[in-house]
């Protein structure tokens, strides 16, 4: 076997995939929930960044992991609420508003980083807290699988769990039902007395919560410091993952798995002769293709419905209705 295949089939690789996936699953679910609610939130990048930063800072200054977690989550939710306020109240275009939020997050974190630590690169001078790793007693003793699945950061398990939580939230709670209804037909939701703005605000805040967990993992699990722009586009990749996964939990999970594998592969492949850039490109090309295929399918379906209706009508229509062919001839003969 080639060294590449060796390393891919090693348990280290599986472990790395899960590690890389974690900061994708959270924001991908965060995006999915807003897309389902009809308020596409493309500011996950900014939400993650803010939470990553405040988690480290609060943790370092208070020494409390719990407070760090709370601070990170609160700031994520606040970002969602702010975007909601701009969009729903001030009527800012949600795309441009989100772009501004991302910009704000990038600038504001570095700004504060400098003000608080005098450093502009990272928080390496601070003693950052880290979420604990969990070794699952029984699982860890299983060969291979145990090496892959056990010993991860607690937030990695939370990420896997969050896909399930997302499923229940969206399909098994009244809020989830309302989110889906509002996204599909706001008039219908309004007609039964649902406050559409409020549901969309909740969706944005939930999205902030998911984004926050992703950000916290980055700075307090994946690594143990905050570095400027450390999200490095994960908030955008997450959007691709959610889109590819059709905003559904399993699909999004699988898409994140794909993106994570490709990413991990790119790291492993560096030693081999395949250019890593091309490998890293795959998820984005896949998303563009998925987008096109999805749009084509929707269009084809509409076409088909129309043709079927035509046939039915002619089949059941009154006898004085000429079949299409005959009508064409008649039209052409004059």
């Amino acid at each position: 076997m080639s060294p590449l295949l060796d390393s891919i089939f090693s348990s280290d690789f599986g472990f790395a995939v899960l590690r890389v996936m974690t900061p994708l699953i959270f924001p991908a679910l965060g995006f999915a929930i807003t897309d389902l609610a009809g308020v596409v939130n493309i500011s996950l990048e900014g939400m993650m960044l803010m939470s990553a930063f405040f988690g480290v800072i609060v943790g370092a200054f208070t020494g409390s992991l719990l407070l760090a977690l709370l601070a990170g989550i609160l700031i994520g939710i606040a970002m969602g609420a702010a975007l909601g306020y701009f969009h729903l109240k001030l009527k800012t275009d949600i795309i441009l508003g989100a772009i501004a939020m991302n910009m704000f997050a990038s600038g504001f974190t570095i700004f504060l980083l400098y003000v608080l630590t005098g450093d502009k690169g990272s928080t390496s001078s601070l003693k950052s807290l880290v979420f604990p790793e969990v070794h699952i007693p029984l699982l860890r003793s299983i060969p291979v699988l145990g090496d892959i699945l056990s010993g991860h950061n607690v937030l990695t398990y939370a990420a896997l769990l969050s896909a399930i939580v997302f499923f229940f939230l969206i399909f098994k709670t009244p809020l989830g039902l309302r989110i889906r209804a509002v996204g599909q037909n706001p008039d219908a939701a309004r007609s039964v007395g649902i406050n559409v703005d409020r549901v969309q605000l909740y969706a944005l805040m939930l999205s902030g919560l998911f984004g926050a967990l992703g950000g916290l993992y980055l700075s307090m699990g994946y690594v143990s410091w905050f570095a400027r722009d450390m999200t490095a586009g994960r908030g955008w990749i997450a959007i691709a993952a959610a889109t590819l996964g059709g905003n559904m939990p399993l699909g999004t999970f699988l898409a994140a798995l794909l993106f994570g594998s490709v990413n991990a592969l790119a790291i492993y492949i560096a030693s081999v002769n395949i250019p890593s850039e091309l490998i890293q490109m795959i998820p984005y090309v896949a998303t563009v293709l998925a987008l096109a295929l999805y749009a084509i399918r929707v269009q084809k379906r509409r076409q088909k419905i129309k043709e079927e209706a035509l046939e039915e009508e002619y089949d059941s229509g009154p006898p004085d209705n000429p079949p299409p062919a005959a009508a064409k001839q008649r039209g052409g003969s004059s």
């Binding site: 599909q184 939701a189 007609s191």
Partner: peptide
């Protein structure tokens, strides 16, 4: 125009 969400 019916007030229904079509995916529900």
């Amino acid at each position: 125009h019916l007030m229904l969400a079509s995916d529900l």
